[in-house]
Design a protein around this nucleic acid. Sequence first.
DNA 1: GTTTTATGGTTAAACGTTTAAGCATAACTA
DNA 2: TAGTTATGCTTAAACGTTTAACCATAAAAC
Lengths: 354, 354
Amino acid sequence: MLKRLSKYKTKLGNKKKATIKDIANVLNISPAAVSKALHDDSRISEKTKKAVKQVAKNLNYQPNHLASALRKGKSNLVGVIVPRTNSNFFSSVIQNMEEVLNRKGYNIIITQSNESYKKECANIDTLLFTQVDGIIASMANETVDLSYYEKIKSKGIPLILFDRGENDLNVDYIGINDYESSHMIVEHLVNQGCKRIAHIGGYKHTRIYNNRIRGYIDALGKHHLPLENELLIESNLTTEDGRIKMQQLLKLKKRPDAVYVAGDYAALGALQVLNEQHIDVPNDIALVGFGDEPFTGMVTPTLSSVNQQSSEIGRLAALTFLEHSKKDVVTQSLNKQILDAELIVRESSKKSKN
Amino acid sequence: MLKRLSKYKTKLGNKKKATIKDIANVLNISPAAVSKALHDDSRISEKTKKAVKQVAKNLNYQPNHLASALRKGKSNLVGVIVPRTNSNFFSSVIQNMEEVLNRKGYNIIITQSNESYKKECANIDTLLFTQVDGIIASMANETVDLSYYEKIKSKGIPLILFDRGENDLNVDYIGINDYESSHMIVEHLVNQGCKRIAHIGGYKHTRIYNNRIRGYIDALGKHHLPLENELLIESNLTTEDGRIKMQQLLKLKKRPDAVYVAGDYAALGALQVLNEQHIDVPNDIALVGFGDEPFTGMVTPTLSSVNQQSSEIGRLAALTFLEHSKKDVVTQSLNKQILDAELIVRESSKKSKN
DNA sequence: GTTTTATGGTTAAACGTTTAAGCATAACTA
DNA sequence: TAGTTATGCTTAAACGTTTAACCATAAAAC
């Protein structure tokens, strides 16, 4: 009796949030019964359930996520690591991922690596520290050392990679067919009559860019075009570097008549240089980017590019995580889902003679 | 003895994560001592601290954030709500916010409203459910009803708004001086010789857009230019709507000789229309955007715009939250921090005669 | 030589849930 | 009527920390 009174006092004093205990007290049942009622446990009568839910509403009860996560050993939080969010691709992936996961009661924590390996490691620590139930990531350009990702695996937490992934890690991966996309692009340029096709590619150590490079090389071969070293350039694919690499190409004795850039931002830099030098795009030099960022349709001339299926990638990444979380045995099942990309032909590669 | 054995067994079986209990067992001290040692409590000897930290490292101990958050009643998580992340402004704000908060042991959860009021409410629920210690938000365009934000205040959780904020809510706010920015822009256009300056503005019910509109009107007055209704248009400021509103302006009997658009994306749409109709920008019609998105320097002609101090806003928002979290009394102190913005003049508003 | 004060811990409760196990009571079965 | 089963709860422990309160022991003070 005394105990109850004092409890009541403090409750009034602090104006604390309502807990299941408060609900239990009102109805004179046990907290356990309340918990079960709120979760529609079959062992609780409909009458009690209804009463509990009513009182919960009256008291403005909000479940304490921390407590339930601690007890259940899962946080219902999924960590996401992306190089940056201010790209349409990543932000669209995230949006679709979120949609799927929210429906299943998961929330996501987004972190950005800013293409920095160090930041990426810090992000992983942050997410592990926050007890996420899984991590969905796209790796920074810089990342070569994978030991930090091994750390995730060793904790038994599902890890799913998308876009920028690494085969060697042996984890699930969702991405587009980069190799095939390069074929599409080269084929398209050949159809436009181009004969000296250059490629400003990404870092070779990143799998997707390596695949695009391989696709470029093989496609040249397929169309009996010679592969020239000076036409294949490695870049960090920023706008600034796109400018630099384009200037480099323009200095060649034999200029290319088409440039395929592995990223839209770098393609934009290249386009700026071409415009500044009053080179006719596409008739003198055709240009194709990669990623289908919104600005590709905004610049002059509009920029051909490859749509990367961001929505589908986000959806599949989320579903893959959910698949993992269903089974309690954490088998990293090495399931690679490769989607077909779509070439969006715009002005920068559509020659007028066609 | 038996108990210990069984405990050891399960530990081997599940390969569970190490806890402070495990560390305590190794050193034959109490878990409480371990906790204190890890937090450098003065009541623990240096020797013990060192030993504890060594064992912690050996066992690959990671503190269980959930447990500590539950016990301490705070999650060290800050929720962030932005209309979208794929804008340079918001992504830069977030990045700077994160930097400041990470240093103080806080992590952030980013959510996007996609300019939808409904999604925004869902985000607030999500964040409250996740037991964040504070919320930093920029409101969706759609948002008019503020009851959901009141919900945050009523929970006693610090709420800080930036960029898109509402005076009426009486909470901390960080933003730029929109009113003054409009003055700067109009003054600049007047200096370029423009006499019929139009404004494609945002929704009047959003404070920042309203301030820009007021600034525009007052600046016209200051320069003795008449305010004409047909030159002041309300828009949702998407690229598409920028196109539509520009077309509307071009249909006027007396066209404007300058257009000030309250957002870069809409300004881009306007620019597209002008380019398509081969109208000389800036000589026939000068154009100024708002936000200094990276693409403003990429389009042809490059687009004058206003830099919104994203880094500083992010930093200040974070610091303001930290200020709140220091005092346990949650006083919403109504502290408005207004920064000066910077006009970046590019080709679209620099007339050749100047 | 007794009292005071540091020093360096220990104990136990608490945070709010969830859940395995237990236990009345009622209802049905044979 | 005794035995079984179903219904609808209750009890108590557990999740991993933190922290207030307590307690030895040793050193210092008087």
